[in-house]
Design a protein around this nucleic acid. Sequence first.
DNA 1: GACGATACGGAACGTGCGCCCCGCTTCGCT
DNA 2: AGCGAAGCGGGGCGCACGTTCCGTATCGTC
Lengths: 185, 185
Amino acid sequence: MADRPLRADARRNRDRVLAAADAAFGERGFGVPLDEIAAAAGVGPGTVYRHFPTKEALFEAVSLARVQDLVADAQARATATDPGSAFDGFLTRLAEEADRKRDLPDALAGAGARGMSDAVAELQAALDVLLARAQTAGAVRGDVTVPDLIALLKGLLQVVGTDSDPALGRRVFAVVRDGLRPQQG
Amino acid sequence: MADRPLRADARRNRDRVLAAADAAFGERGFGVPLDEIAAAAGVGPGTVYRHFPTKEALFEAVSLARVQDLVADAQARATATDPGSAFDGFLTRLAEEADRKRDLPDALAGAGARGMSDAVAELQAALDVLLARAQTAGAVRGDVTVPDLIALLKGLLQVVGTDSDPALGRRVFAVVRDGLRPQQG
DNA sequence: GACGATACGGAACGTGCGCCCCGCTTCGCT
DNA sequence: AGCGAAGCGGGGCGCACGTTCCGTATCGTC
């Protein structure tokens, strides 16, 4: 467990693999063959396995960074003065990222993995703050829970990422956003 | 092309395969191995291929029936006196079927297939009537299009079908339904 | 009941992909 | 420069799955 520092070339290759994986997973989701990622990184498949025990581990490494980004963003917004637009801002950011990060739904779904679950838990906590503040401020309906929100976002990301028409994505997003507002009646 | 009548055992096997495929696809989506479907039908894989040229063709045969069901339902509701609740009713029906028909999203997505596209076109036409009537009646916001609706439903079905908590599904559905209402402002 | 046509079953093939192995290269220290 | 250790590459294995082939069984007719 002495975590000896990596040799220079090893570190370089590791970084290249991560970069290639980030790009490939982002564009096409978890489905990309590992050999392709290796090739894009200018590396043999064996090298990928020297650094990551499994394809899933590689995916998690990439996803972890993505989710941690989201957490940081959510936390930053949580201190904004207007809870409603803080919530909106977060949702909008997600919608905008949808087609640049096709793997986000998979990442959110794969909460079963080690280490990943911590990040997802953090995300849930951060969303909890964002959501609760927006709810008490009357910007979001009260009966929605954090799991609901995540499920909704997952679906939204999938739809927006799958369909090519950006206008459709915007309208669908608007429907969901409006549905999240308090309903009179 | 003389479409000679099938031998008795052939017809029986064909029906069994269709029934098994319907059940398997419905429960687990397009992903089920074909061998498993064959086994469930008490038949060898070769027999399946005697009746359907490809796995996709089998899936389409099942999907076609599902989509045609939806079309019939939508058409029936289209003549109801209250356009708003007709629309709601259709949505509710879909939400209720979500976990019994896990393949519905795939079926809606696979509009690229022959014959299938006809059925999807019919569904679009039927939805068009349902939607237009609900919109003119003021029950649904005017900026939503049929493709929007289908994308939304696809996402909804996926989310509801994936998650095990039925209460979550109900709340998510409520959010979407409310988001589809005309927004004041 | 016998014969040809039809259909069946499941072993086998091809492909795609995750993952491992091992001979060779490269690094880093002295 | 030289040597041991660390790392690399890519061929190859095993598995899953869609699809095909063909020897055998079943059907339907005369």
